[in-house]
Design a protein around this nucleic acid. Structure first.
Length: 795
DNA sequence: TGTCCACCAGTTTTT
DNA sequence: CTGGTGGACA
């Protein structure tokens, strides 16, 4: 997908070509080739063939919506109803966009070039860059991620002493984000707020200052990308008319996740264009035809402003809309679907929908209750060994959890068991300090107005430019109404020591040198910046072994920029920065690499796996404690569980623990209310949740204590005895210095394991650091152990 | 200015 | 248990 970012060749000029047909044409075009319709079921086929102003495809999980969407686009192209450049397809992730483009290309080949298949954010960036000059921005603007936003807010809050009022960067960021997603700006919000409230007044002031800083830095935050595009289209009718005329067919994926700003964007783009709005337009043009695909049962982003009413009210919003339901599922077994249907059926207030499949019941859902999170993780690892032993690939297996904190126990056990895995999302590469430093250098070069990035690198590596010096520079900048960067160039006019002044001048000269070459190869720019700034040297000289790893990361980033340039010949620094700002967790997932995928339930949406583990199915985790107070919280959490269940094709595992460790404290855990909602006969409990923990019963869950459901009684078996020996030290077992690489092991050897007790080695495979022992323990069963780090001794 | 240490608070999901 | 912050000292 080399043109994912649409560098060049976006076919905008094709607007000038004759328009094949307006939207809602209907019959004048040729028939859709049978090849594009073959193999579709009746509603799918109708969804591909229907023509009209608006179409809502209610696509249940696994009902083939991507197929429908891509065939629909291919149909528009194949019949010449639309030029590629007249199609705008919007997704939420780059991965979804890439997949769609690829599949359309497979269907119609080169024909598909020039389509806009992009995420909301990248489409908006595209429009904003193109029109930047029009409304007073420079097209070199950069994008602040949530870390940048927090850093900036932190400074602003502190500067005004607003921290004592209780305003936190996180809280303010969330409020601003929410407001922007509802298309408020500072002034419109101020009108609705009661400014008698000192907290609101302080918030408003911070927000105003924050926006001003962004403007000065020539930067947008994430929410601005959408809302500013909407404002742009509203404020400049001629610009709006251009895009309305250009995009004749607009398709939106995951429509249930759109927020108010995104909805407004769609509305703007689907307005008709009247004669006279554009000089070369001879006739009135109807609004673009709109196709949206979504499933309100999979709406899990309300916390981010997604408004489920956008999809439930679609028919009212777009008169003449057609609604098509896709309910046949091609992904999962009937057992999995029955569980999913039963769970989601507890959400009232939804359009009834019933997923079904004709592919058979499949295996039962496997349930497990562990003593602790580690015990649960061990179950996951054991099952994975079992599954892969039966021929399943690691990459066909995924483990889901509600919160990122849950990965620790899982990772620890997976490492110990030598199961290759990958954490999707989580602590990301781009969040590491050294990567942020390196990126800040690039941002500073690309966007000299950005003071935030400049501040970050000003004294990294150490140049003797401390807070006092920085403040002096800033004061000079404010006084002369210039940027911080300009102030650095005029350092001679500021009374500073000669050493400091020299350091500042050197840095400014280095940055300016590259700023002057915006089209240079980003990889080269980064390599030179890192070496000439002394950044790499500083890491290389450091005695701290961690710095060696940091150096590697910086080199990895250089490799990434090189790869970017290779994929996008001529791609500029700004292009690279835009790409990296807009990557989402799910984008990291490339199907290559035989690894188990670990991710949050949110990240899992839109993906599918042969075998799925949903862990931590407990109260306070799923549903999460924080959701309890929010309106619609429990229902949204239920949808989240539903999304998780429906990711599984063949095998589904639900697990929980009786105790959960958080902050080093161990707390009792209670089975999730959602477990009760799954019919008992669908689950095969290896170890059922017990009702023995009277102390752990929360008030709201009387049922678990008072009238335990049959499923837990019939499935009941005595849990295995706790491993003996000294109390468990799970935490940090991995980082503990242990190196068994010298240990000779062979089949038949007897060993003792810290947790599992004594056992017999069955086989040893792998080499050196990757040596894996398969051991049959006397009480704990069969386990795989990574010899190098296993807490074992030979007997 | 830089470094070290002790204390503190905050912990959901993320385009 | 983590990361961030602020103070004390070199």
């Amino acid at each position: 997908m080399s043109d994912l970012w649409g560098l060049g060749d976006d076919g905008f000029e094709e607007v000038q070509r004759p328009t094949p047909l307006g939207a809602g044409g209907g019959s004048a075009h040729g028939a859709i080739p049978e090849a594009l319709l073959a193999g579709l079921n009746p509603p799918q086929r109708e969804a591909v063939e229907h023509r009209g102003p608006a179409l809502l495809i209610v696509a249940g999980a696994g009902s083939g919506k991507t197929r429908v969407l891509t065939h629909r686009v291919a149909g528009l192209l194949a019949t010449r109803e639309a030029w590629p450049s007249q199609i705008l397809a919007i997704t939420f992730t780059n991965k979804a966009a890439a997949e769609m483009r690829e599949r359309v290309e497979q269907l119609v080949g080169e024909e598909s070039r020039g389509m806009w298949i992009r995420t909301f954010h990248s489409a908006c960036v595209r429009i904003l860059r193109r029109e930047a000059e029009e409304f007073g921005f420079k097209d070199s603007f950069t994008i602040y991620d949530s870390g940048d936003v927090r850093a900036l807010l932190k400074r602003l809050i502190k500067e005004r002493g607003a921290d004592i009022t209780g305003l936190t960067p996180g809280g303010v960021a969330a409020r601003i984000s929410k407001a922007k997603n509802e298309l408020h700006d500072v002034d419109s919000w101020a009108r609705t707020a009661s400014l008698d409230n000192p907290l609101d007044a302080a918030f408003l002031e911070i927000w105003r200052e924050y926006d001003r800083e962004l403007r000065r830095a020539n930067a947008f935050d994430f929410d601005d990308l959408i809302s500013q595009t909407v404002f742009l289209l509203r404020a400049f009718p001629r610009v709006a008319a251009q895009y309305r005329k250009r995009f004749r067919h607009i398709l939106v994926d995951e429509y249930q996740d759109t927020n108010a700003a995104q909805y407004a964007l769609i509305r703007e783009l689907t307005q008709p264009v009247s004669r006279g709005e554009l000089p070369d337009l001879r006739d009135d043009l109807p609004g673009a035809s709109l196709t949206v695909v979504g499933d309100s049962d999979q709406s899990i982003y309300a916390f981010r402003g997604a408004d489920i009413r956008n999809i439930t009210d679609f028919e009212r919003d777009f008169p003449g809309a057609r609604v098509i339901m896709l309910e046949q599922n091609y992904r999962s077994t009937q057992n999995i679907l029955s569980a999913a249907n039963a769970v989601i059926g507890n959400n009232f207030d939804r359009r009834a929908k019933n997923l079904w499949t004709d592919s058979g019941d499949g295996a039962k859902i496997v349930g497990f209750t562990g003593y602790s999170g580690h015990d649960e993780a061990q179950f996951v690892a054991d099952e994975i060994v079992e599954l892969t032993g039966g021929g399943m690939a690691y990459s066909d297996i995924a483990v889901f959890y509600r919160t990122n904190a849950q990965t620790r126990a899982l990772e620890e056990v997976l490492i110990r068991t030598a199961i290759p895995y990958r954490v999707i999302g989580g602590t990301k590469f781009y969040e590491r300090a050294e990567i942020k430093d390196a990126m800040a250098y690039l941002v500073t070069v690309a966007n000299p107005a950005d003071a935030l990035s400049l501040r970050r690198i000003m004294n990294v590596p150490k140049r003797g430019i401390g807070p006092a010096t920085e403040a002096a520079l800033q004061a000079f900048a404010d006084e002369h109404d210039i940027t911080l960067r300009d102030a650095m160039r005029r350092v001679d006019e500021i009374a500073l020591g000669p050493k400091v002044a020299g350091a500042i001048k050197d840095l400014a000269a280095l940055l300016d040198e590259f700023s002057a070459r915006p089209d240079a190869d980003p990889g080269e720019v980064l390599r030179e910046l890192m070496s000439r700034s002394g950044y790499t040297d500083q890491l290389r000289r450091s005695p701290d072994p961690q710095d060696a790893a940091r150096l590697e990361n910086v080199e990895e980033l250089i490799a990434v920029t090189r790869e970017f340039r290779r994929q996008n010949p001529g791609g500029t620094l700004i292009d690279f920065l835009t790409e990296t700002s807009l990557v989402a967790a799910a984008d990291e997932l490339d199907d290559s690499g035989g690894q188990v995928s670990l991710m949050t339930l949110h990240t899992a949406k839109g993906l599918e796996f042969e075998a799925v583990f949903i862990t931590g199915v407990e109260e306070d985790l799923l549903p999460h404690r924080m959701s309890a107070n929010e309106p619609g919280g429990p229902a949204e959490e239920r949808r989240l569980f539903y999304v998780g269940i429906t990711r599984a094709r063949q095998r589904l595992h639900l697990s929980l623990a009786m105790t959960r460790a958080q902050f080093g404290e161990v707390n009792p855990a209670v089975p999730s209310r959602y477990l009760e909602e799954i019919p008992a006969d669908l689950i095969d409990w290896r170890t059922p949740p017990t009702t023995m923990r009277a102390s752990a019963q929360p008030r709201a869950l009387g049922r678990w204590r008072d009238e335990p459901r049959e499923q837990f009684v019939t499935g009941y078996r005595t849990p295995p005895p706790l491993p003996k020996g000294p109390k468990k030290e799970f935490a940090n077992t991995i980082t503990e210095v242990r190196d068994n690489s010298g240990l000779e092991l062979a089949a038949g050897d007897r060993i003792r394991h810290k947790d599992f007790g004594e056992g017999t080695v069955q086989a040893v495979t792998g080499l050196d650091k990757k040596r894996v022992a398969e051991v049959r323990f006397d009480t704990a069963g069969r386990k795989r152990l990574l010899v190098k780090i296993a807490p074992i001794e030979k007997l």
